[in-house]
Structure formats: C-alpha cells, structure tokens
Design a protein around this nucleic acid. Sequence first.
RNA 1: GCGCUCGUAGCUCAGUUGGAUAGAGCAUCGGACUUCUAAUCCGAGGGUCGUCCGUUCGAAUCGGACCGAGCGCGCCA
Length: 553
Amino acid sequence: MIKSELARVILKVVENLRDELGLRDLPPIILERPKEKAHGDWSTNLAFLLSSQVKLTPQEIATKLVSYLRKELNQVDKIEVAGGGFINFFLKPVSFLPFLPQIIKKGGRYGEINIGQGIKTQVEFVSANPVGPMHIGHGRWAAVGDSLANILEKAGFRVEREFYINDYGSQMDIFAKSVSARYSEILGEKVTFPENGYQGAYIYEIAQEIVDKDGKKFLQVDPIKREQIFKERAYKQVLEHIRKTLEKMGVIFDVWFSERTLHKKGKVKETVNYLKANGCVYEKDGAVWLRTSQFGDDKDRVLIRENGEPTYFASDIAYHKDKYERGFQKVIDIWGADHHGYVKRMKAAMKALRYSDDFLEVIIGQMVNLLRGKDPVRMSKRTGEMVTLEEILDEVGKDALRYFFVSKNTDSALDFDIELAKKESQENPVYYVQYAHARICSILKFAEERGIKQPSLSQVNLSLLRKGEELDLIKKLVEFPEIIEECALSRAPYKLTIYAQDLAALFHIFYTQCRVVSEDECLTKARLLLVKATQTVLKEVLRLLGVSAPEKM
RNA sequence: GCGCUCGUAGCUCAGUUGGAUAGAGCAUCGGACUUCUAAUCCGAGGGUCGUCCGUUCGAAUCGGACCGAGCGCGCCA
C-alpha cells in the first residue's frame, strides 16, 4: 500500500466525521515515515492539526479516528495511537511483496514518476569562462548540475543541459593579448606583458602550440590582427579542453550556447528595445538603465554603458529571453556564491520581461575551498597559480569526486582536501555503495555457476521473504519513487546519496544475515529475486549520481 | 554598514519544510571470516543543536536580537 492510497482512506474517514466533530475545514493529510521503526511504516499528525478546531485532546481525536480507520483498512496489520496523538500504521509485510516483480519488470525505469509532466526544462551549469582551465568549484557544479538533470528527467521533466560560453567582451581581449605576448616571448622578442593579463602556465602552452604548428609566421602580422587570430585559436582550444574534462567527469551537455551569437544576431539590442517598449528603461548620465528597483532589486542597473557598449547584464537578459523563446517553461541556473548578488537583478529583469515568477530558478552553490592536507591551496588568477579540475580529477578519480561533490548540500561551503580524498579512499562512502553492487553481482554469478536459473516471476513464492532484514530491504526499495520525487521537488540531488547509503547498508545487513544461495530451492529463488531487485535500484541510483556500478571490486 | 548562505558528537554531515527519547558515516575502543567478496557486519562511548528572548499542545526547524565563518554589495564578467 502506498502513501497516496492511505492518505485517500484517511481523508474519507475525516470527511465522514466532519459534522460529528464540527470541522470547518479539513487539514492536509500529512503522512511521514517515522524515524523509529517502532513507530510503524506510516505516521500522521492529523489529530494534532484537528485539535485546534475540536474541543478534544489530540489523544481523544486520534482514538476516535482510529476506530473508524480500522474498518476501512485491510492491508494494515496494526493501527495505534502513540506519543500523545500520533496515529501509527503498521502495514502487513505481504503488502510490500508485489513491488518486487514490478521492480524486476520495470528494470531501470523503476522509480520514474511524472511530477514534471513533460515540461520543457533547462538546467544551465558550469558555464566556465573559456579563457582558462576549470577549477575545483566548476567540478562541484558539474556534478550537482548533471545529477539534478538526471533526477529531473527521471521525475518526468523534459530536460536539456546547457553550457553558456562567455566568449564576448574584454576578458577575451585580455586573453588574446596574453597569448600573443607569450608567443612573442617564446620566439625571443622583447615584450611587455599586458597589465591584468592571464599569468597561468597554460597560456605558454597555448602559445607554444601555435609556435610548433606555425612557427614565426605571426610575428610579421599586425598586432591587432594577430590577437584576433590568436583569440579564436586559443578560445577553441580552451573550450575543447573544458569539454573533454567535463566528458571525463561523465557530464555531457546538450547545448553549448555562445554569448557572441546573441550580439551577432542583434538579440541584445532587440531585448533592450523590448524593455524600452515595456516602459522599464530610462536614460541617465549618458547610459541606459533598467528600472530593476521597481521589481524588487535594490537599485536600478545599467544596460548600455556611456560608451555605447552593452553590459554583461544586458546580454544575460537577452540570453534568458532567448531561453524563453526556445520554449523552455522552466529554467534552472546554477551559480556560484560569488554571483548571488546578481540574483535579484536577474529576477527583476524576468519580471520586466513579464515572465512568470517561477520561470527562472537560481540555485546558489557555496564555494569550494581546496586543501592539500591542512594547508589551503592558494589560487590566484593574477599570478596564474592554480590547481585545475582536471588534475584533481586524475588524482582522485571520477567516481569519488562526483560522489563527494553531489553528496553535500549546495547551501554549505565545502572543504575539499585532496590528500584526504585519496588517503581515505578506502573508507569513502562511494565504495560502500559500489561494494554492495559488486557483492550482488557476485551472488548472481555464483548462482548462475551453480546452474540456478533466474526464476520466472510466477514460479517464486515471495511470501518466504519474511525475516526482518528481508522486509527492511524490500521497504527501502519501495521508497525509491518517493525519494525521486523529494529530490526533484527540492532540487537536491544530495538526498539521493543518503538513500544510496541506506539502501547499501540494508543490503549489507541482509547479506550478513541471510544466505541467498542455499539448499532450500524455493527460498533461494525468492531471495535471488530480492537481490536482483536491489541490484536494479542500486544501479539506477548510481547512474543518476553519475557514478559507475562495478561488477567486482 | 546592508544583503545572501552557514553554525548540530573530536571530524564530515543528515534531520522528511513545526512532531515522538536529536540520527548516520569517519575516527576511537571491543567483538565476528572453513560458508554467495571482511571495501562487510555486531556492540560501546561520545551532544548546552552558536547564545539569548519570543510564537504554541510541541522548536534543531518559524520570528527577533546578538556572536562567529564564508561570499557579495561596479557603467567588471
């Protein structure tokens, strides 16, 4: 019996008692899974909620409700009033058994729900500037964004993953100047390195590659033109490197969206004009301003600078307008905490465009502090001193890295200690979960070698599964769709890792207590089915988390 | 100064949107491999939920004040 069925029955009972109890309005039926096993499978605080309307104690209300509920519920073993008014439901163990064949039949599709109702949704994340390698923070957003997208898909949203390329503006020019300067330097020319230039060693590498390929050819070229050429080459190279690193992390984007195209197609100007027509724009001090303060921002913001150049804000509005025009009904942006001050104005801009309030959702993720041992790893754009995401990925490994990142709530800042991540690798939670999967594969292989065939569903007597360890495991499997719903609605993939731990733990306990392949043929078949179902869910959870499900370890 | 996020066991974190005696993992200590993988399991110790008020049947959770940490407050991106 599932939550919704139980809730329906309770609601019916309350409605029948409406006049007798003198209820004005009906409270929502809240069912929760109690933390304590002793409190049953489901629990409701309904009596507490009703006590404000009824002149009875919660205890009395609960007792009354229970006397009616008992008649309506046949899948329930026991209903009790406890803790001063909680109503606890203990389901019959048999009622869980039909889920097992369902899981087997659905396979990887088990857990799919439809709260998304196919709405076209975009998750935009990482969006690292294409002027250098990614850092550890990008890794966090890659892991979180990709898993969130996976979960939303599972929950029935139609999802696209998008990477926004900031390939327009002054930073690209500085980038090009930096490469150009290093190019000259490598070829023995005397140059002064541009102020604010990018100091990183990777700039040398890019310059070196140009030298290797084309030699001194560009020394004669006019500096402006040369920078133009280098900009394109270097940019493509960096972007390709970003793409490859993300791919190594198992993150594949559907769309790589270039900021330049917005400018080229006149979308930025078009957007400013559109806002003008909406009456949200005015001129002051030679600049063009958007009245964001009318839509909840602290002050108005500039769209077009005094010098005629649009601001980043203007092109970002155009970008989001473009998202809207591409038919997305919901857009989720994942930004680092250093951009949180930007949220208000962006939300205000969406209002100025007259989009609904829930069109744009911004997830602000707190920063990652990189440590090696106890010491913080200093990183500076200015000096170019930095440890890249790729280096960390190679050192720590994809599975551990993704699991570590996705398992933390994005609201909290996070210390990532490279030494710890490697040293503790044996005790890393990811291996605990993966090990459960590997153990399952081992059992299934063992059974196969013994010539025990995967039984057909009708052959299995599931009611043989009645030990506590077996039932606890089954109940956990039954929870899976609820977990997907919770993760999707709260946009919180980290909750899935908690489920993964719980499920793995219950499997390990089951494994210790219940011999699967035994002399008892019927029991063996029933347990094999349970093991197979566990494997199905575990594998799917790991897939959603972007972590591999090894067959042996 | 203002705004956002965080503060729970020695460490890393949960705590189902206000519920029952605040829970896991790591670390520490003590147990369990002749059997499908011991990267596992079982047990023990460990807490002023940053502090103080308030809201109510009931607060780690909501509100206010304060303390502490991080981030932000550009005609930068």
